[in-house]
Design a protein around this nucleic acid. Sequence first.
DNA 1: TCAGATTAGTGAATGGTGTTAACCGTAAAC
DNA 2: GTTTACGGTTAACACCATTCACTAATCTGA
Lengths: 250, 250
Amino acid sequence: MVQEQQTRRERQREATFDEIVRASRELLAEGAELSLRAVAGRMGMTAPALYRYVASIQELVDLVAFEIDKAATEVFSAAADTQPDDDAAARLVCATVAFRQWALANTREFSLVFANPIADSSCARRDLLTASASGLLFTDLLHDLWVQTKYPIPRVSDLPAAVAEAVTDPLIPANVEQVPLEDRGLIWVYMQGWTMLYGVVTLEVFGHMDPRVIASGEMFIDTVRSFATRIGLDHDWKRLEPLMRTRLAG
Amino acid sequence: MVQEQQTRRERQREATFDEIVRASRELLAEGAELSLRAVAGRMGMTAPALYRYVASIQELVDLVAFEIDKAATEVFSAAADTQPDDDAAARLVCATVAFRQWALANTREFSLVFANPIADSSCARRDLLTASASGLLFTDLLHDLWVQTKYPIPRVSDLPAAVAEAVTDPLIPANVEQVPLEDRGLIWVYMQGWTMLYGVVTLEVFGHMDPRVIASGEMFIDTVRSFATRIGLDHDWKRLEPLMRTRLAG
DNA sequence: TCAGATTAGTGAATGGTGTTAACCGTAAAC
DNA sequence: GTTTACGGTTAACACCATTCACTAATCTGA
């Protein structure tokens, strides 16, 4: 279609664009700082040339963060796929563990994607956030579980006004087209879960927690169990906890 | 005592030290970046002079973070003190709300104190963390509540090994000398609460949440309620929630 | 009291950062 | 085939942390 009649220049441009984010991610993975000079140097260019592709270093960071999120989501998704389709609970648990393990193993990447202020509310930034891949994955997993088990969710009419508005017309990542308006309480449950997960993992990544607790992962397990009861998985916990622990160890 | 026979130089040095953190906090409050040049410039000095007082910019940041934490804790403590001594629940709730409001009003300070990686585990850093004033306040408030209501806490013997170790010999801020070994399950409850509180507030501060939910504070309220049930305050929630909402609005 | 040592500051310099401006050759467009 | 736009360059500016050599003031001990 439109893709096919790409001019040579456009293809070239896109290729360098890809190389920019690739070089950036390599730098990050090597533990180096992300800087225009470093990125440019790695591709045999000079720093000012990058301004033909990004308007500022912040835009580059946002771009890279978006790509990292996409790539990490592949990992989480693969973790979920180790479990059968009809076992949504296990799939959710495995993705959650994968998220935590990835965060601890790639702390600078985690900081970039999940601990980066969105304060300035620049349009580009918000758009990227809204399309967050990991957000979509976890809402999907939670939705799948709900379809299978129909755990209790609040009625939209019972939610506070601001929340009702947010779940019926969400800006935050959520594949909500598929879920009918009456069941949007599900989004609220998702937000609750995400808040809890985010809390433990960020605390662990930043090291603001007893190192022995971090190493053991007990607070993470405790948090997941807490949310598990919230979504009616108590009866299943005897099975899910060992699964979690093996996943954490491996 | 020792203080009195301070030599002139020592007094001078301490005064300059205080001025450094004061200037740093002023910069932060004005929304400027914290840099050696800026701090030195504000005090009519040059940047290299600051190396007589701190070994690196990171050490300055840690120092300032420590002082900010101390000052902020005064604010949280004052919020608790608006409630009578025998109403530990209300005191805890008010301090919690104060924490959240302070974090949202002073996001860069919050990031400095609570979203700063402790990765390098430099001794100085760890020591400061262990002496975190806000951590001490919240453990105290939770302890007071427990003394008053004796809400259920896990037995240390029921806790996972790593957790038991962490609560009997804590590195993380906690005034635990006063609480006997059998009751150290309290520390675990504290860690759970802190994790939840940290999760919401950090998510809100970084803007990784629907702006309408942030503005309304509903997720924050929801999280506090969730923890309130955890510490046996369900029966009191009818009273505590309105208190929270007035505090959030004011 | 006075010499020697310690201390708190300076200016200059190094090497790093993001960013802007002027320029230039080459590839695309008409 | 001429013109235009693009993608790169170099040079420069304004920051940043940090180190070094040096100076002037203060403290210390004989």
